[in-house]
Design a protein around this nucleic acid. Structure first.
Length: 530
RNA sequence: GCACCGUUCGUCUAGCCAGGUCAGGACGCCAGGUUUUCAUCCUGGUAACACGGGUUCAAAUCCCGUACGGUGUACCA
């Protein structure tokens, strides 16, 4: 049995010699989505970890579009991906838009490159031509299934299948010249142990006897993911591949491909998956609609069905909160900090502290993150964000006034739009009076109490919160009316409900005249309780 | 089926590599306190090492097995 060592560059157990060699290698990472739909949060997290790793180590991040599957292309997906990263604040150093010295950055535009590499593999005996059609293979799989066996195109089966291993070189050349459809398959060694090193999982080994002869080059002239991926990563001088765990089973093939080409391998890290919040299984598109939370960073409308899926952006999440939440889903700094700006994440990030097991998204924690960011934002900025909502509600107000009101209620909100519900009464008289509150707090003596209070308020010269409070409290104490009885009824007249910040802060903002008018309105609406 | 990966409070997780802590934190939840209301806030509480063996004076931690879960097994990525 032969041992194939993956001399992965960043394993700490490697001899110093290797590490010195590697330290000279530039750090270059890539995120390589395929434009088959919108990127969901799992993909964004993968991109984020790539970004953090690159920045942390002074490297570059590349965006490469892997569109080798022409059948699954979805209109608008590429555009969505770009917009998405712009919103999140994940920046690429090289991409279709930005360019760079290793383009093109779209695989369909690199099509001409791959055939040569497939040929090299054939020449070196690591690959071969196969003429079996997809239909033939499918029916063979079916036949095996009936016999409770699994068909695998491997070292055993290939001996009696329709490929160049079983016919002469001349005949192969003839068939290709003749225009017969063919694919190129990797010739998997029959019985070798491939030893791999994963930056997160450590040493992983697998015997090639359980692997199959994967197609590298399709009959439509395009490479499969496996070939294109290895070729491009090599050509683009990628030093580290950080990708989802669903790729771990393909790692032996990829390692073998690097060896077959004689290329230096990048370091590999396979990230645990994001799981469905209920039950198990990896998070998918549909889960969001089913469970009532966004799966996509931004809203997405399917160009074919017209179906719309909600997004974090549209739901009111701040990109910083979204990124912070996502970063902590599978990674932690090793201490008890939880709030991280992007810069702080870059500073703190290390691939070793990424967990091994999948994590479930928690909506409540996501909201908590957003709340933390909302209370940290300055009031002017929040006023700008809230202003459209205010205008939509038919209210005209100066930004300064709005910012001032926000400062009094921001602690109560999770999203910017929550703010409106928390402060609309600063700019709007009560349209109705909360029935429950009226029942509970509008007592038999309330009408007279409020009428008397109105007189007190009307005579205050400086209508500032502290001043009003002092006067009103003194009046209450002198007459032994009781704080609760007065203040709750008063709040009901001003706000229309038993909610909101310090009442004297509210009336000092709306002003003396408005305060008196609201008392009049409330007195008229609620009347004297019998 | 086969291969690989995984498994600590309901959730995110620390601790595991270098065995000895009442198994720590956060979100949620519950209770109490503060408050003119609601919310915030403060204090406290709730709750976990998948199971079974082994090694050891001592196991969440090391070893083996089992169970459960996940991923992969396409001319998808």
């Amino acid at each position: 049995m032969l041992l194939i060592e993956n001399s992965s560059s960043f394993s700490l157990s490697l001899p110093p010699k290797n590490r010195i060699r590697m330290s000279n290698r530039n750090i270059r990472l890539r995120f390589a989505p395929s434009p088959t739909g919108p990127l969901h949060i799992g993909g964004v997290r993968t991109a984020l970890y790539n970004y953090l790793f690159a920045r942390k180590n002074g490297g570059k991040l590349i965006l490469r579009i892997e569109d080798t599957d022409q059948a699954r292309f979805v209109e608008g997906a590429e555009n969505y991906i770009n917009e998405d990263f712009a919103w999140c604040g994940i920046e690429f150093d090289e991409s279709i838009e930005k360019g760079g010295g290793f383009g093109p950055y779209k695989q369909s535009e690199r099509k001409h490159l791959y055939k040569d590499f497939a040929d090299k593999l054939i020449e070196s005996g690591n690959a071969y031509y196969a003429f079996d059609t997809a239909d033939e293979l499918n029916s063979m799989r079916l036949a095996y299934e009936v016999g409770k066996k699994t068909f695998v195109y491997n070292a055993v089966e290939r001996k009696h299948l329709n490929n160049s291993l079983n016919i002469s070189e001349k005949e192969t050349a003839g068939r290709i010249k003749n225009g017969d459809a063919f694919v190129v398959r990797f010739k998997m060694p029959e019985n070798e142990v491939v030893v791999m090193n994963d930056l997160i999982r450590g040493r992983v080994e697998v015997n090639t006897s359980v692997l199959d002869d994967k197609i590298l080059f399709k009959s439509d002239g395009m490479p499969t993911y496996h070939l294109a991926n290895i070729v491009d990563d090599h050509l683009m001088q990628i030093s580290h591949v950080i990708r989802g765990e669903e790729w771990l089973p393909s790692l032996p093939l990829h390692v073998l491909l690097y060896d077959a080409f004689g290329w230096e391998k990048p370091g590999f890290a396979h990230l645990p998956l994001l799981l469905k919040p209920d039950g198990n299984g990896k998070l998918s598109k549909r889960d969001g609609d089913r469970l009532g939370f966004p799966v996509f960073p931004m809203q997405w409308t399917d160009p074919k069905t017209g179906e719309t899926s909600r997004g974090y952006r549209e739901d009111g999440y701040f990109p910083e909160a979204f990124i912070n939440m996502l970063a902590l889903l599978g990674w932690n700094p090793g201490d008890e900090r939880e709030l991280f700006s992007m810069d702080a994440l870059i500073e703190a990030f290390s691939i070793e502290r990424v967990g091994k097991s999948g994590s479930k998204f928690d909506l409540e924690k996501a909201k908590w993150f957003n709340h933390q960011y909302l209370i940290k934002k300055n009031n002017d900025e929040l006023a700008d964000l809230l202003m459209p909502t205010v205008i939509k509600n038919g209210i005209l107000v100066e930004k300064e006034q709005l910012a001032d009101a926000i400062s009094l209620v921001k602690e109560r909100a999770t999203f910017v739009n929550d703010l409106w519900d928390q402060l609309d009464f600063f700019f709007k008289r009560p349209q109705q009076y909360d029935a429950k509150a009226v029942k509970k707090r509008w007592k038999a003596n309330s009408f007279d109490l409020m009428t008397e209070l109105k007189g007190i308020l009307a005579n205050i010269a400086g209508f500032e919160a502290q001043n009003i409070e002092a006067v009103v409290k003194q009046w209450i104490e002198e007459n032994e009316y009781g704080m609760g009885a007065v203040m709750n009824a008063f709040r009901l007249l001003i706000v229309g409900a038993l909610k909101g910040p310090h009442l004297f802060d509210i009336i000092s903002r709306i002003g003396q005249e408005e305060t008196l008018e609201r008392i009049d309105q409330g007195l008229h609406e609620l009347g004297r309780k019998e």
